[in-house]
Design a binder for these strands. Sequence first.
DNA 1: TCTGGGGTCCTCGGGCAC
DNA 2: TCTGGTGCCCGAGGACCC
Length: 410
Amino acid sequence: MGRGDGSGRLVSPADADDTGSGILHVDMDAFYAAVEVLHDPSLRGLPLIIGAPDGRSVVSSASYEARRYGVRSAMPVAQAIRLCPTARIVRPDFSRYRAVSTKVMDIFGEITPLVEQLSVDEAFLDVTGARRLWGRPREIGALVRRRIADEVGITCSVGIAATKHVAKIASTLAKPDGMLVVAASDTVDFLAPRPVRAMWGVGPKAAETLESRGIRLIGDIRSADPSVLERAVGGALAARLRELAAGRDPRSVQTQRIEKSIGHEETFERDVRDRDHLHSELLRLSDRVAARLRAAGWESGAVSIKIRFADFSTLTRSQTLAEPTSVGQRIGEVARSLFDDIARNDPVRLVGVRAERLHPAGGALGLWDEDEDWRRVEGALDQARSKFGTTMITRARHLESGHGRAGGLA
DNA sequence: TCTGGGGTCCTCGGGCAC
DNA sequence: TCTGGTGCCCGAGGACCC
């Protein structure tokens, strides 16, 4: 979901060069606020803040009218109200957003089967194979915008490029209600003058670190000394940023997404010091996590907890389970025991429980799987012995056992 | 001003196995 | 039998995304 105020909108002309650009990034404009306007048309044109009006909540989304006052997502609601006292505050209704999101994703699915949903309000579409049916990428982008406006009643912004990274940047620049096409041959020139913060994966911390070393623009990343870049942001991110800055992004549009963890966390209205209260909250969150695990047919191989104290310092603790589980009581026991091991009695503002290392219920991973693998290996060896004789196979086993757990092939 | 909730991924250090 | 090197796994913390 975009977080700007929509003042930098760009729209490519109808004959923009889209040669080699088959990836669309489609992002709904101020999605939660737009859905609330659909639900209650009297809100149209008003500054809207989506967020709980009480307690310690933050802004989930804001209409462009509210953004003009400096209201931004993730800002405390209390601060947003101070900036824009006339704004209407609307409590978020995620079931409503999911319902509208389904309609939008259905439209995408009718245009191409290669849809990667990133969140409730944005997706990548690979349209390289859809041209014969729907025309050039820029025509497909226009079609997407038209259909969402006509059939759903909200606006979106579209970025069209050769890679996901560039398409994503393009859609942000096109906001709101715009479309920006970047020809594959223009990729590097398009990226070079943009701030490093525009890159996917560069947040406030990384941007600050890079800027302190004189690396302010994406073009600076290309010319920067690799060792300087590595020291600044670490080897993995440095390598990735260099590739992205050069316009290379091999990631394809992924239609399948496998969840790796399921968790819940909650911030208390007031900080809590009472251990019994915290224990019962951990159990309650564990039950919710377990219910979602069972609904999805998953079991969890590890449990982690998150404790945020009143001073905002945050601890996480995790534990691998001897037996995978989707039972709330079991997850709750582990969560409680992890919590009890923390020797700190300060007031707590947030507790969270997360189930990790998910796999299908019934033991698709773990010891059973290792045994199955081993049986397969033995079976293959038996076959090989009968084919090649024992000596050669024994030699192969010897070599196999000679390399360590981490040693690779001998 | 005072920082939500749902996630993913990366880094680093310690333990451990070979 | 002991030891150092190597590299994986795990746990913790943090940055980042929407």
